[in-house]
Each structure stands twice: as structure tokens, then as C-alpha cells.
């Protein structure tokens, strides 16, 4: 064995075997957990949508979330894009759509919901972001995102979100996370404006 280690064949074969063993076990683990991971991802999207429509979800259980989701939210494809419609009984009261843009460190993905007459922002939430935990990462904490519930969109077009203390400010920013907060404001202003003008143009 000791002599064999010096040759070229031995290290290459050894490396190949080690690589195959580990790659194989990782792909097996991935295979076994992929359903669960996908389910967790879908569950998170459903919870996010319920949150932006301000529907209470009590327990952190998958089944109750699914049931409530089915009762309140309808998915429809409009112009090749997925549109989420919230209904209370038979009457629709809001539309939700994905928002997306660049944060400070990476892209931010989330959802925003507006009322059916486009006069009110019902709520926003984020699916994924890479902002600094404890600073920019606080955009996904209730204290920040709850501010966007029932926010009037009557301001000038494309300039819906204004941080206090600027004139006309309606939302508080996060101390120490100016970059992230600015990014969030721009994403929201742009995407809400784009969505509303698109929907209005439809009619």
C-alpha cells in the first residue's frame, strides 16, 4: 500500500472513490428530503400570502394553513402571470402579486397586496432576502412590515411609500439599515405602480 501511494493511479482512484461516495450520499439525502423542502417552501409562500391579505393563521401547522388558504385565496393566471385573489365569501377584496428587486446584499423577493379598487395597500411580506441579520434583516419582523397594512395609496403616482420624517411620510425606516430600507421603498414604489397601471390598463 505504501508504495502504491506514490503512483499517479492510486491518488486519482482514491479521490474518485471518495467523491463518488460523498456525492452519492448527498444526492440520496436530497432525494429523501426534497418533498419536505418543497412543501416547506410552498407553505411559506401560502403563509406569506395570508399575511399580506391580513388573514389570521393561528397554529403553525401545515394542514390548518392549507385549509384557510383554500378558503380565502384563489389563484388565477392573468396574462401569463400568477395573480392571487383574496375573497371574503364570494366577494373579492384584494389582489396580491410578487415583488422583486435588489437589496443591499442580494435580491429581495416578496409579495404585496392591494385592495380591488387600488386605493389601499393591504400588506407586504418577504419570502427571501440576504440582508444583515439584526439590521436590514429586520424588514421581515412584524414591527416593520405591519406598518404597511391598510396604507393609503392616494399619494402621487409611483411615490406611495415615503419614510418619516420626510413630508408626507407614512412609514418608519430602520435605524442602521438605510441601504436596505431605501431598496425596499424603491422596490415597493416601482412594483406597486407597475401592477396598478397594468391592471388599470386591462380594463
Amino acid at each position: 500500500m505504501a508504495k502504491g501511494k506514490k503512483s499517479i493511479v492510486y491518488p486519482v482512484t482514491f479521490m474518485l472513490i471518495v467523491t463518488v461516495v460523498f456525492t452519492l450520499s448527498l444526492s440520496l439525502l436530497n432525494e429523501f428530503t426534497i418533498d419536505r423542502i418543497n412543501y416547506n417552501r410552498d407553505l411559506k409562500i401560502r403563509r406569506t400570502l395570508l399575511y399580506v391579505f391580513d388573514v389570521e393563521v393561528e397554529a403553525y401547522s401545515g394542514e390548518s394553513t392549507d385549509a384557510i388558504y383554500k378558503r380565502y385565496i384563489e389563484e388565477r393566471i392573468v396574462d401569463g402571470k400568477k395573480l392571487y385573489i383574496a375573497k371574503d365569501g364570494d366577494e373579492a377584496y384584494g389582489y396580491a402579486f410578487p415583488i422583486e428587486g435588489n437589496g443591499l446584499w442580494g435580491s429581495i423577493h416578496g409579495f404585496a397586496a392591494v385592495s380591488t379598487d387600488y386605493s389601499t395597500l393591504l400588506g407586504i411580506d418577504f419570502i427571501s432576502h440576504n440582508e444583515t441579520p439584526g439590521l436590514g434583516g429586520r424588514i421581515s419582523e412584524p414591527i416593520f412590515k405591519d406598518q404597511f397594512k391598510q396604507l393609503s395609496l392616494s399619494g402621487s403616482e409611483g411615490d406611495y411609500i415615503i419614510f418619516r420624517p420626510a413630508i408626507g411620510g407614512n412609514v418608519d425606516t430602520i435605524t442602521g439599515a438605510t441601504g436596505t430600507a431605501k431598496a425596499v421603498r424603491e422596490i415597493l414604489n416601482e412594483d406597486i405602480h407597475a401592477f396598478i397601471s397594468h391592471m388599470k390598463g386591462d380594463r
Binding site: 460523498f22 448527498l26 416547506n40
Partner: peptide, 22 residues
């Protein structure tokens, strides 16, 4: 070899967290 082993275990941690502690 060490790098390969370490990264394999880190991916295991990542997958397990995603599946059971999202």
C-alpha cells in the same frame, strides 16, 4: 480530501435545517 469531506457535511446540515427547521 478534507475539503470535500467538510463541504459534504456542511451540505448535510444545510439540507436538514431546510427540511426540519425551516
Amino acid at each position: 480530501v478534507q475539503t470535500l469531506i467538510i463541504s459534504a457535511y456542511v451540505i448535510i446540515v444545510d439540507i436538514l435545517l431546510k427540511a426540519y427547521y425551516p
